[in-house]
């Protein structure tokens, strides 16, 4: 592996240019990038965005809805085994997208959340996909509890539920050809860590389910 999955990667000085001149126009062309509940979007860290995950487009879409002054602080958590797999993909993921790697195949005893914790400690805005992988389009899979560990370590960080509607149609898992269709990013009120993991995960799941119910019908019949 060309880069360690246990440290926070450095960002390219051209990252902002790449995000604004390429990633954002591409996301807008393919999805329209509508935002519902923009007032709930955290603009300063430490903060955590917890979103559903259906498509590689999700990360592009979420990076495109932040204003320029905030997006320099936004770091998506992504699987090291996939995104650091080849030198080119690794460079692109670490330096331009600005991922925070998480090692899904780590040996027991290693702290896979260390890079994410380091990012929060720096005051970054972390994007996590608590389903852990891209699931069935527009269905919420079971949530992994890593997000609760992050929230417990940084109880001052708001955890904002985000429902992405429609990205699973534009570029579903396994598809190579994107098809432009409107998507909606629904941002909900933040959930706070209050010391109880079950309760926290329940509130997060309820928040995501409420956003899913309120989302416009951008789905297959």
């Amino acid at each position: 592996m060309p880069s360690s999955a246990s440290e926070l990667p450095r960002l390219s000085p051209f990252r902002l240019l790449f995000l604004r001149a390429f990633a954002r126009p591409l996301a807008q062309l393919l999805t329209g990038a509508d935002v519902h509940g923009r007032e709930h979007l955290p603009l300063r860290g430490p903060a955590i965005l917890a979103a559903n995950h259906n498509s590689h487009l999700d990360t592009f879409l979420l990076l495109s809805i932040f204003p320029a002054r905030a997006v320099t602080r936004v770091r998506p958590v992504a699987a090291a085994d996939y995104f650091l797999a080849s030198p080119a993909r690794s460079w692109f993921s670490r330096r331009l997208i600005g991922i925070t790697p998480i090692d899904r195949r780590a040996k027991p005893g290693t702290d896979v959340l260390a890079p994410a914790m380091a990012a929060l400690a720096r005051g970054d805005i972390l994007i996590v996909f608590p389903e852990g992988t891209r699931g069935e389009a527009d269905e919420l899979g079971s949530l992994k509890t890593g997000v609760a560990k992050l929230a417990a370590a940084f109880p001052e960080a708001p955890v904002t539920p985000v429902w992405i509607q429609g990205a699973g149609r534009v570029l579903p898992k396994g598809a190579r050809m994107p098809v432009p269709m409107n998507c909606c990013v629904c941002v909900g009120p933040a959930v706070r860590w209050t010391g109880d993991r079950t309760r926290f995960m329940g509130e997060l799941k309820d928040g995501l389910a409420a956003l899913q119910a309120s989302a416009p019908p951008l789905r297959w019949a």
């Binding site: 329209g32 429609g166 149609r169 579903p172 598809a175 050809m177 098809v179 432009p180 269709m181 409107n182 416009p216 019908p217 951008l218 297959w220 019949a221």
Partner: peptide
């Protein structure tokens, strides 16, 4: 894009 995204289409209609 707005029309085709909102109208009821089927998964098979994607391409």
């Amino acid at each position: 894009r707005e029309f085709l995204s909102l109208a009821p289409l089927r998964r098979e209609d994607r391409l």
